[in-house]
Structure formats: C-alpha cells, structure tokens
C-alpha cells in the first residue's frame, strides 16, 4: 500500500500539485488519470522520490518515505520498479543485460541464475529471441515490454508505470495494460499507472484517481466512472465520440 498525505508541489511559484491525498491499495491496479499537463508525471515523480514535494508525506506501508534520508530511501528504492514514459532502457546494454542490471547491482545471484530470471521475465512479457539485441534494434512496443521485464526482474513490491501505452496501436496498448494488471495480481504488488487513455481505464482501472489542474478531483473505479455527475470528469471521460456513442446506447 502507498499513501500520500497533502502533497504540494510548485515550480517557480507555479503550483502544480495542490493538496493531493490518496491511498493506493496492494494487489490492484491504481490509475491516475487526467489531461495533459494536469500533474500526473509530477505526482508520480514525487511518489518515487525523483522530485521532492514541497509539503506533505508519502508512506510506503507505513514507512514515511518523505522523512527519510538518501541512505534510508535506498531500502525502499530496491523494492520499486518503474516503467518510464520513454522506456529509458540503457542503450549501451543488450536486452538481457538491461533486465539483469538490478540483479547485478543488488543480488548475489550467480550468472546462471540471473540469466534464468531474465529469461523468465522476458517470457512473462511474451518476448522471445531478443535477449542479445540492443534497445535501438527494438520497436516501441517491444521496448515497453523489455522495460516492464526490467522493472519486475528484482521482484518489486511497488510498480510504477508512466503512460505505459502511449504511442502504441490499440491492440498492443491493451496487451501492455493487461500485462501490467496480470503481473500486479500474480505478484500481489501495489501498482500505480499514469494514463490519459479511457481504454486503459475501462480495461484495468481497479481504482481510478482523477487529477484536475493539480488537484485530486474524483476517485472511484472503472464502473463508477461512467455514472458520475462530476462535470470536469465527464468532459474527460466523454471527450471522444466513441465514449459518447456508448453512453447514448446505454440509455
């Protein structure tokens, strides 16, 4: 479980996050949704400590991450996996080396064991015969999948994904979403996903938090989101013709 308490963050006096308090439960896929520029990435970076919030606290299973110093944070960092918006694979390393990297750094596993684990993670994301390729030789969707494999290789307790399916075709996007949701259940971890894609919301949104201009505007799940009276959320949900059609057919 991850809990935030009254998070504030501004850049050069421009407030980006205002009083965000949230609880992300374990074993479910938690979505943060909102328009472009609403502060989703900033919120996620505050959660993992890449940015420091100006005020507020972040708890990882009742361990106050915000109050920790660099060295103490390391313990929690080793329990995190993160999928970046641009994959962020190490481009001087092969796919296999990328996935083995957290294991190289922090475990005493033998080379054989690490390779086995890397193979397992690659199988898990349905990638085969790519272990000796460099990231530059992969397609966007493959990169995302390798990045997921790397994020889960050291068995994280918390998984963060920033726009895991942006820039992918609909079937691949859904595949990645499902993968994240399945892994979350299998490993019983706490997963937080940033997205602005309603397809993702409908597919995997066990818990959905809507951020509007840096404020927490609404929370619910993929079922309740369709029947809310919140005007700003409605304009987000029913921004596309497709969703409007579904709604009118519902009635």
């Amino acid at each position: 479980m991850i809990r935030t308490e009254n998070i504030y963050k501004s850049f050069h006096d421009t407030p980006v996050l205002k009083d965000v308090s949230l609880v992300f439960k374990k074993g479910q896929t938690n979505l943060i949704i909102g328009q472009s520029g609403s502060g989703k990435t900033v919120l996620m970076k505050c959660l993992v400590g890449l940015l420091n919030a100006d005020a507020g606290n972040i708890f990882y299973d009742d361990r106050n991450f915000s109050a920790m110093r660099f060295r103490q944070r390391k313990v929690i960092r080793k329990e995190l996996g993160m999928l970046f918006q641009g994959s962020a694979l190490f481009d001087s390393m092969t796919v296999e080396e990328n996935i083995m990297f957290p294991l190289d750094m922090f475990t005493t596993m033998t080379r054989k064991e690490k390779q086995k684990r890397a193979q397992f993670c690659l199988d898990r994301v349905n990638l085969h015969n790519v272990e000796h390729l460099l990231p530059a030789e992969l397609s966007g969707g493959m990169k995302k999948r390798v990045a997921i494999a790397r994020a889960i290789s050291n068995k994280p307790k918390y998984l963060f994904c920033d726009e895991p399916n942006s820039g992918l075709d609909p079937p691949t996007a859904i595949l990645i979403d499902k993968l994240i949701s399945e892994i979350t259940r299998e490993l019983n971890i706490t997963t937080v996903v940033n997205t602005h894609d309603m397809n993702s919301v409908m597919e995997i949104g066990d818990f959905v938090a809507y951020i509007y201009k840096g404020q927490l505007w609404w929370t619910g799940d993929r079922h309740t989101i369709l029947h809310t009276s919140n005007a700003e959320l409605n304009s987000f949900v029913y921004a596309t013709e497709l969703m409007r059609t579904i709604k009118s057919e519902d009635h």
Binding site: L50, K78, M82, F84, A88, F90, F101, P102, F106
Partner: peptide, 9 residues
C-alpha cells in the same frame, strides 16, 4: 536513463 538508475537505488 539516469532517473531509471536512481529509482533502482
């Protein structure tokens, strides 16, 4: 990629 390293601790 540097953020990715830092996330890992």
């Amino acid at each position: 990629q540097i953020d990715a390293l830092e996330i890992m601790g």
